[in-house]
């Protein structure tokens, strides 16, 4: 790795001021794991890193409101979220997903904000939060704005977060009577990056599904909603024929990309069965308190 300048601002606003909208070699660093990987691989050589370490305490609170809304400070580590019993009770899908997200050491260091801002489509947290209808508040030099997680991504490692903006908070709407699941299919070792991720959140009125939010990851260049498949599922019952139609619709709408974890043709088949499996898993999940 090559030398660089390290800045350690004390406030979020100060941090934003140290970022440069026109210089890609200036980046914020929270936990630093993903960034360090890119630096070691020689794909990123920063001139300046803006460490968010000293502003972490102010932006790492995790709380569930009386109405059941989950608010996560972007600097909260993934393991802090994992250990938060209130969040786990209110959002079992997050609690089930976290123990298999990367590994303990990464979760201890990596922050929720970084995991969302990195833009790697293989990550587990973005599709789950997208399915749950979460939004992030993004702080820039002048103002802050809210963006839905499913609208955060514009391409492979590309997001709407500007070079001089930071994600400050994540807000996940209450589960209420929703059910949710995250299906992660690996093609090689069990702890590999997924070949496909499918996240789903839905209401079940007896046999009828509604408010289905279905999200694909890993097999596509970015985390994305599968709206055509959602249309088929909404108002229908989760029988074999419907799930199969939804799977086919997902395959028709998702721009799947091939990689060493599977060809396009193979990942299509994974998505085709993955949609139904994710919905069934959500339906059989235990309800929230």
């Amino acid at each position: 790795m090559t030398p660089f300048e390290l800045m350690e601002p004390q406030t979020l606003q100060e941090a934003v001021g140290l970022l440069d909208p026109d210089d890609a070699s200036v980046r914020p660093v929270a936990g630093g794991t993903a960034l360090m990987l890119m630096m070691k691989a020689g794909v990123f050589a920063p001139t300046r890193l803006v460490s968010l370490q000293h502003i972490g305490a102010q932006h790492s609170e995790i709380g569930v409101s009386g109405a059941g809304e989950l608010r996560i400070g972007a600097m909260a580590t993934l393991s802090a979220l994992e250990r938060n019993t209130k969040a786990a009770e209110a959002f079992p899908v997050i609690a089930r997903m976290l123990p298999r997200l990367s590994n303990v050491r990464v979760r201890n260091v990596a922050c929720v904000g970084g995991a969302l801002a990195h833009g790697d489509p293989h990550m587990d947290l973005p599709p789950v939060l997208a399915a749950l209808g979460a939004k992030v508040s993004i702080v820039g030099p002048k103002e802050s704005r809210d963006v839905a997680v499913d609208e955060l991504y514009t391409g492979y490692y590309e997001t709407v977060v500007g070079r001089n903006e930071l994600i400050a908070d994540v807000i996940v709407p209450a589960m209420q009577s929703r059910k949710a699941a995250y299906l992660k299919i690996t093609a090689r070792s069990a702890d590999d990056w997924p070949a496909l991720g499918v996240a789903v959140a839905l209401h079940a009125d007896g046999n009828t599904l509604r408010d289905v939010r279905l999200v694909a990851s890993a097999a596509t260049a970015m985390v994305m909603r599968l709206t055509e498949a959602e249309k088929i599922l909404n108002g229908a019952s989760a029988d074999d024929a419907t799930l199969k139609r939804a799977g086919d619709a997902a395959v028709a709408e998702a721009p799947i990309i091939g990689d060493i974890r599977g060809s396009v043709a193979y990942k299509r088949e994974l998505l085709r069965v993955g949609v139904g499996r994710a919905v069934r898993q959500a339906l059989s999940s235990r309800p929230t308190h």
């Binding site: 691989a41 090689r188 070792s189 069990a190 702890d191 990056w193 060493i260």
Partner: peptide
């Protein structure tokens, strides 16, 4: 094209 432990996977505890 997969010259790293991230892309060349070996068996772990779950395997």
């Amino acid at each position: 094209t997969n010259a790293s432990l991230a892309d060349y996977k070996i068996p772990g505890m779950h395997d």
